[in-house]
Amino acid sequence: MPAPFRPARELLIQYARHHRDRRNIATHLVGIPMIVFAIGVLLARPTLDTLPTPAGVLALTPAVLLWFATTLWYLTRGEFLLGLSVSLLNGALIMLGAPLADAGFVSWLAAGLGLFVLGWVIQFLGHYYEGRRPAFTDDLIGLLVGPAFVTAEALFSFGLLRPLHDEIERRAGPTHVRDLAFPA
């Protein structure tokens, strides 16, 4: 298995090789945030402790611990703007999911599992268009790279991280729409 601490640039290029069809990228822009949100919902229980902050009290949950660990990972991959952006996005999704932990057990579990499964269904639909299996089937670190990839795609759309975008396109190829009538 490849090392999990490779630079973001290399991780994104490897991931992009499985994600060149624009429809697949579009499904990931929906599915991956939905999955991160669902993980935030599911891991918002139990509250392990509370911490005072300038903004109030932070409930220390498995979701917050996971966010902290992944933030350290993203920020140490060598693309600071990307690492910061994906960490802030993931943090927002986790915070938005936290109130669902206060719902009844069945509502909390149904929302978390339902959104998690729906997010994956959307992902696999994208891979149908791509004609390739998901990147995590070759390297489990792809589960962490996915949120960085969709964040990078959003940043690219604003003209940010142009050198990274150009290198991904040079090494993984340009995006396209695969002809499903005549798949390669």
Rank of each mutant, 00 (worst) to 15 (best):
G112E: 10
G97N: 06
G97V: 02
L115W: 15
F116H: 00
A98S: 13
L84I: 05
M95Y: 14
G131I: 04
N90E: 15
G97P: 01
A101G: 15
V86W: 12
L115N: 07
G83V: 01
L113Y: 11
W108E: 02
F80H: 07
R133T: 08
I94T: 10
L96M: 14
L109M: 13
W120D: 07
L118E: 11
L96D: 02
G91T: 09
W108I: 04
R133A: 10
A92R: 06
A92T: 13
H127R: 12
S85D: 02
G112C: 07
G97Y: 02
I94R: 08
L118A: 15
G78T: 08
W120E: 12
M95I: 13
L115H: 14
W108L: 02
R77T: 04
G104F: 11
Y128D: 10
A98P: 04
L96P: 00
I94D: 04
G97D: 02
G78W: 05
L84R: 10
W120H: 13
G131L: 05
R133E: 07
Q123I: 03
G126H: 10
L118D: 05
R133Y: 09
R132C: 13
A98E: 13
G131F: 06
L100T: 07
S85L: 08
F80G: 09
G131N: 08
E130G: 10
V117H: 00
Y129Q: 09
D102E: 15
G112F: 10
A101S: 15
V121L: 13
Y128V: 15
V106Q: 07
H127I: 05
F116M: 05
G78Q: 02
I94H: 09
L113I: 15
Y128W: 15
E130F: 06
V117N: 05
A92I: 13
L81T: 03
L93N: 06
T76A: 15
A101I: 07
A98M: 04
L109H: 02
G119S: 00
L82I: 03
F105P: 13
L118S: 14
G114W: 00
V86I: 11
H127Q: 12
V106M: 14
E130N: 06
G104P: 01
F124K: 07
F105K: 03
I122C: 00
L118P: 09
T76P: 04
V86L: 06
D102W: 02
A110H: 02
S87L: 11
E130L: 11
V106D: 14
F105N: 11
P99W: 01
G114A: 12
N90R: 06
L81Y: 01
P99C: 03
L89K: 01
G78N: 04
I94S: 11
G114E: 13
G78L: 06
G126S: 07
V106C: 10
G104H: 03
G112P: 10
L118N: 07
L96H: 02
G131K: 11
E130I: 04
L93W: 03
L81R: 15
G78C: 04
L100S: 09
